[in-house]
Structures are given as structure tokens and as C-alpha cells.
């Protein structure tokens, strides 16, 4: 893989939160046009990683390069210019509750372009059509189901045709049908826009069907990586535990505690 084909390059990324290390040296190279999943248990720093790529947090050490530029070196204006070429889907959509579906999708267009209202209307309806919700344009977010809200948020995230799209737990709390719909949409939008997608998730089965490459993170480090085929046939105990959803394994069932007999005797 040649260097200019790499969109996101993460080198030895470390991050401490309140003196506690969250990420302890992550290395990733994400090529253009791919859909990449980052997996790991709850609280392993996946969301933190996305926020570091988006520049909402600053790394303690190491760096994140996007399209050849180091995110943490950008000033405020540079960071905002960079984020206009980036879309992000938040865990529960994060739709603006005071705006209708139409106005939510129109929001980035109205804030960042001087397009005439008629053109904005066409663009918004196009995006809503792509997620199948053109008919829901006048609804308010509180009358949408979880899956629909996620699709509207997706339409909003791609409103400005971003080069990089990030997804924070896109499958959480969805029924199987909505889950499949969102999965297909992510793949489809990525290929149609020629974008690159980074998806943070712990939904193994859905991800294995649609992504190009998978990273496993545990305790702040990349513990395994590979294409879906490699992951399925991996002998790595962590991957095995995760994919097969075993209770105990490299990720212990018990929170670290003193010896059980010792605790009983102390009572």
C-alpha cells in the first residue's frame, strides 16, 4: 500500500484521562475508500479514539494524520475547515431536537454554504431519499423511532459529501431490521460518495458482513487486526472470545479483587 493512498495514519497514539491511561500506543493506517471497524469491549477507549481523530481531544503523545495533516497541530480555524470535510454519526443520532427532519439535514448546508433555498431543498431531499425518509421531512425528531433517527442523522452527516465519515456505535439499541438497514446504508453511502468510513462498534456479526478491515482494541492497545475472513479464522484467544461471545477468556469475567477466601474470612 503506497503512502498517498492512506487517508488516516495513526502513530503511537496515547491518551490519558485524569492521569489514567486510556490509549497506550495505537497504530493504524486506514486507506482511502475503505470501511474500517474498530472493535472492543465497552469502555476500552473506542469513542475516545474517534474524538481524537476529529480533533475534539488532544493526544498525550503520538499523532493522528488525516490526508497528510496532523490534527493536533491545527488551529481553531484549520480544525473547523478540516471538519467540514468530515461527517460524524453520533451514538444516538444527536439530532437537533428543536429542528424538523428537513432542517436537521439542511443545517450543515445552511451554516457552511450560501446556496439558494431552492438548491438546499433539492440537496436535502436527495440525501433524505438516499436514506429512505423523504416522506418524513416534516416530522420532529421526538416522533422518530431509533432507527429512523439514526438514518436522519446519517443523511445529515453526509450532507456536505464528506471525505471521511465516522460512526460512533451506529448499531446500538436497534432492532434487527433497522440494524441491517443501517449497515447497508453505511456501506452504500461510503461507496457512492467515494468516502472513507471509520466505525466504532461492538456488534461483531453485523460488522463482519460489511467492513473491509477490523481492528480489535483492548486495554488501550490494538490486540488484533485483519480482514473479516482473517478474523473469522483467527486463533487469537481475544478475537475468539469476542467473536464467540464467551464469558471468560483474556477479558476476565471478574473485576480485579482480592482472594475470595480472604474476603470471606475478613467478614
Amino acid at each position: 500500500m503506497s503512502d498517498d493512498n492512506i487517508l488516516v495514519n495513526i502513530e503511537n497514539l496515547q491518551f490519558d484521562y485524569g492521569g489514567k491511561p486510556v490509549l497506550r500506543g495505537i497504530n493504524m493506517r486506514i486507506p482511502k475508500g475503505r470501511v474500517v471497524a474498530i472493535m472492543g469491549g465497552s469502555g476500552c477507549g473506542k469513542t475516545t479514539l474517534l474524538r481524537l481523530i476529529g480533533g475534539q481531544l488532544r493526544p498525550t503523545a503520538g499523532k493522528v494524520d488525516v490526508a497528510g495533516e496532523t490534527v493536533s497541530d491545527m488551529n481553531h480555524a484549520g480544525l473547523y475547515a478540516f471538519r467540514r470535510r468530515m461527517g460524524m454519526l453520533f451514538q444516538f443520532g444527536a439530532l437537533f431536537t428543536d429542528l424538523s427532519v428537513f432542517d436537521n439535514v439542511a443545517f450543515p448546508l445552511r451554516e457552511h454554504t450560501d446556496l439558494p433555498p431552492a438548491l438546499i431543498r433539492d440537496l436535502v431531499l436527495m440525501k433524505l431519499q438516499a436514506v429512505g425518509l423523504r416522506g418524513a421531512r416534516d416530522l420532529m425528531p421526538n416522533s422518530l423511532s431509533g432507527g429512523m433517527a439514526r438514518r436522519v442523522a446519517l443523511a445529515r452527516a453526509v450532507a456536505l459529501d464528506p471525505a471521511l465519515i465516522m460512526y460512533d456505535e451506529p448499531f446500538t439499541g436497534l432492532d434487527p431490521i433497522s440494524l441491517g438497514v443501517i449497515g447497508q446504508l453505511i456501506r452504500h453511502l461510503n461507496d457512492a460518495l467515494g468516502a472513507t468510513s471509520i466505525m466504532v462498534t461492538h456488534d461483531v456479526q453485523e460488522s463482519l458482513q460489511m467492513v473491509d478491515y477490523i481492528y480489535f482494541i483492548s486495554e488501550g492497545r490494538v490486540v488484533a487486526e485483519g480482514t473479516p475472513d482473517e478474523i473469522r479464522h483467527s486463533r487469537d484467544p481475544f478475537v475468539h472470545q469476542f467473536v464467540e461471545a464467551r464469558v471468560d477468556g483474556p477479558v476476565p469475567y471478574h473485576f480485579p479483587a482480592p482472594d475470595w477466601s480472604h474476603d470471606l474470612a475478613a467478614g
Binding site: 471538519r83 467540514r84 468530515m86 460524524m88 444527536a94 443545517f107 457552511h112
Partner: peptide, 13 residues
């Protein structure tokens, strides 16, 4: 509900 964060990620202060 992360609306402020989402706005910040859309490059809107």
C-alpha cells in the same frame, strides 16, 4: 444528547 458535540463536529461553534 450530544447535540453540542455534533454541532462542533460539523464545524459550527
Amino acid at each position: 444528547t450530544e447535540q453540542l458535540k455534533a454541532m462542533d463536529m460539523m464545524a459550527v461553534d
